[in-house]
Structures are given as structure tokens and as C-alpha cells.
Design a protein around this nucleic acid. Structure first.
Lengths: 227, 227
DNA sequence: GTCTATACTTTGATAGAC
DNA sequence: GTCTATCAAAGTATAGAC
């Protein structure tokens, strides 16, 4: 009221009024709500109405903050790919196969555990034929898989594991770990649980690590050193 | 024209005109088109418009034949569950674990191979929180899993396989096999293929069988008898 | 900066012409 | 039996009040 006649330009924060903090909070709410809705119903099945309701905002606020439905969706996909890339650290032939594969399974499992909505969002995108992710799959991700595959093959040549097809092995690990996020409704229905506890997830991780490592002829450190 | 004045009632076939055969063909076309569209975009994301276009029929014909979008979707889900149930034959403790697990992996793989759209339809339903399949999951399917789990445990007690959690094992097999239908777009993008050949599928089946059986300490007949 | 009102398109579904 | 015309509701997006 006593600020004079200086017009508020965009970005200018007025004292006592909602400044950047409101925007940040609203954006966070919208992104979280949108991730849930897109994960459940896919790109086409999701409505801005449903997203706005879940975020506790009027419908047009979603568009005000995010520009368009398409832009919002792309932003969420990119956020998930960034999380994914964060754990795609490089490995070398000199590393221990048991260590690497266990870390691989564990980190992938934790990603699905921490971001189940993002995991399902990704799954829905792939189910739809990956219209927004074609490039990423055929480029970046393909190169990453080929690099790892090469190392698995070299391990096999050195007799550190069986000569299994490394690409099928990567797909096996991906599918087995994603399953608990993407098919959560099925897992809970069949096991009769309300949710998977941390202990459940730990148990599953151990199970998968043991079966897959043993199945590929990799002697895990635990088994090897405590015998 | 010379048939007299008898009005054509429903079900009555007039000579030379489209009789049941047209209906059958149209229904088949609609079901196939709908399976594709629902698989890609989920229940909400699918539009009757898109289904009609893929079936080569006007939009209202879809409703004429199928009654409602909901009814069409449920019918497709039930058809897929019927295919699924068809290969859920009973097993006994007396059976050979290697035989049973291999047949399990192989038949599940073939189901995904023969009905990829149905497999993705199912996946989309689960992603959406299984609104139409809750009952089936918590009832029929849960009972089936528990029965198999019991047998796996008895095999473990008899020393025929490692004492792994049988439910996690079933989920592992499901996820690993479903992956090639549900995540087809990812698999093709990463491998740089246009499609998976029969030979590819056979190779993957062999890979999964070897790794999972070995991983669970089941000695496969091949390995056992030819050593 | 935020929300209400509204423009315009597409949706599932129905009525009625042929 | 099949298709065109149409409905009310819901979709994305924008304009403008506050």
C-alpha cells in the first residue's frame, strides 16, 4: 500500500506477499500430482482437471505454471530420465562382477522404490510406443547398454561369469526390478499386503541378487568368502 | 423382394444379404483394433474414434456392436484372462522342478509373444491400479500363486531346489517374460531391431530358463544328463 | 500473480434416416 | 442392420477481471 506507484514487474517480490516461494511450492505440487496422474492413465488418459484437483489448484493454474499439457509431460519424463542417468555410473573390466551386478540391482530397485510414480510414468510411455522417448532409447540408452554389454562379455572371457548374452541379462535385471513399482497393484493384490515395507524390499533385493548372480555363474563375495 | 411381407426380425438372415458372417467379421475387427488402442493408451486414453478408425468402421458401429466403451474394455480383459487361465494347468509335488519351471517360462513367453497387445492391455490395467481386475487378483490369481508356492517350498524341502521365496520367484518369471511384450518399444530401440524374430524369442527363452533354473539351484535335465 | 469466464474441440452415447 | 446427425459433457487452451 505504501510502496509508491512503482508497478510490480515479473520477478519483483513485494514484501509480505507471495514471492517465489509460492511459485516453487505450487510447481512442486503440480509436478507431483501430474506424475501420479500420468503414471496411472498415460499421456492421453490424463486430464489437466484431474491433475489440478490432486494439486489442490484451479485447472488453469496448471497451464499458467506449465504452459501446456505436452510441456508438463515432457518435463516429467526428463526429470525421470535425469534420476535414471544419475545412477548410470561407468564401470570397468577391472571391477568385480559380483560387486557391480549387486550394486546395479540394488540401485535400480531403490530408484523404483523412491520414485514409483516416475517409474510407472516411464512404463506408460513405453507402453504407448515411446513417442517422446524414441530418440533417447536409440541413442543415449542404447550406447550405455552396449558399453556395459562389452564389459560383461570380457568378464565372461576371463571366466568370471558364464557367457550369457549381456543384453538379455540387462533386460532381466531391469524387468525384475521395475516390476515391483509398475505392477505394484498386482503384487499387493496377490500377496495380500497394503504396501511393501522396507524389509520386503530388502528381502526382494537379496533374492534377486542371489538368483541372478548364481544364475550367471558369478560367485558373490558373501558366498565365496564365508564358505 | 419376393420374400413376401414377413418383416425381418433380429437374427433372421435374408438370402444374399450380409448374415452372421458380416457381424462376426466386424466384431473381430473391432476387438482387434480396440485391443491395440487400449494397450497403447489405457482405458481413459483410448477413444472410440481411434478404435473405429483402426477397425475401418464408423464410430457408432463400435457402440452398436459392443454396447459401451466400458463393456468393450471388460470383454477384452476377460478374453485375455481366459487365455492366461488356459495355461495355468495344475502341477504336483511329484513333477520334476526343471520340467515345470521350464514349461512355465516357455508358455508364459509364448503367451506374450502370441498376444502382445493383450499383454500390454493387461499391463496398462495394472498400471492404472487394476480398477477392473482387483477381484481377480485378490481371488483367483492369488489362490493360484499360493498353490504353486506351496509346491515350490516342498521341492526345496526335498532338496530339489534352493529354498528361495516362491512368490518372488513367480514374480521374477512373470516380469522377465512380460517384459518383451510390454517394453517392446524399449527392447527394439536398444537392440536396434525392427522386430523380434522367432529365433530371438527362442534365444531369450533359453537364456531365461538357464539363468533362473541355475539361480534357484534347479539342475536342468539337459545339464544333468549330458555331463 | 492468481483465478473466473469462456472459446473451441473432442469425447461417449443416442435418435432417427435409409 | 448400418450409418449420419446430433446431444451433453469433458477436453485443452486463452482472455481478461481482480
Amino acid at each position: 500500500m505504501t510502496q509508491g506507484s512503482v508497478p510490480a514487474e515479473r520477478g519483483v517480490r513485494e514484501p509480505g506477499e507471495a514471492n517465489g516461494v509460492t511459485r516453487q511450492r505450487n510447481e512442486r505440487e503440480i509436478l507431483a500430482a501430474a506424475e501420479r496422474v500420468f503414471a496411472r492413465h498415460g499421456y492421453r488418459g490424463a486430464s489437466l482437471q484431474a491433475i489440478a484437483e490432486q494439486a489442490g489448484l484451479p485447472k488453469s493454474n496448471v497451464l499458467y505454471y506449465m504452459g501446456s499439457k505436452r510441456g508438463l509431460y515432457v518435463r516429467l519424463l526428463e526429470r525421470m530420465m535425469a534420476r535414471w542417468n544419475a545412477l548410470l555410473d561407468d564401470i570397468s573390466v577391472e571391477d568385480d562382477p559380483a560387486d557391480v551386478l549387486e550394486a546395479f540391482i540394488r540401485s535400480k530397485m531403490q530408484l523404483s522404490r523412491r520414485h514409483p510414480e516416475g517409474s510407472r510414468l516411464f512404463a506408460a510411455e513405453i507402453l504407448a510406443g515411446a513417442p517422446f522417448l524414441q530418440e533417447y532409447l536409440r541413442g543415449e540408452l542404447r550406447a550405455w547398454v552396449q558399453a556395459r554389454a562389452k564389459i560383461f562379455e570380457q568378464w565372461a572371457e576371463r571366466g568370471l561369469m558364464d557367457p550369457v548374452d549381456p543384453v538379455w541379462l540387462i533386460f532381466l535385471i531391469w524387468s525384475a526390478t521395475q516390476h515391483y513399482a509398475d505392477f505394484e497393484a498386482q503384487v499387493l493384490g496377490i500377496t495380500g499386503r497394503d504396501e511393501l515395507s522396507d524389509a520386503d524390499v530388502e528381502e526382494i533385493t537379496t533374492f534377486l541378487t542371489r538368483v541372478i548372480l548364481k544364475g550367471c555363474g558369478v560367485r558373490s563375495r558373501d558366498d565365496g568368502s564365508t564358505d
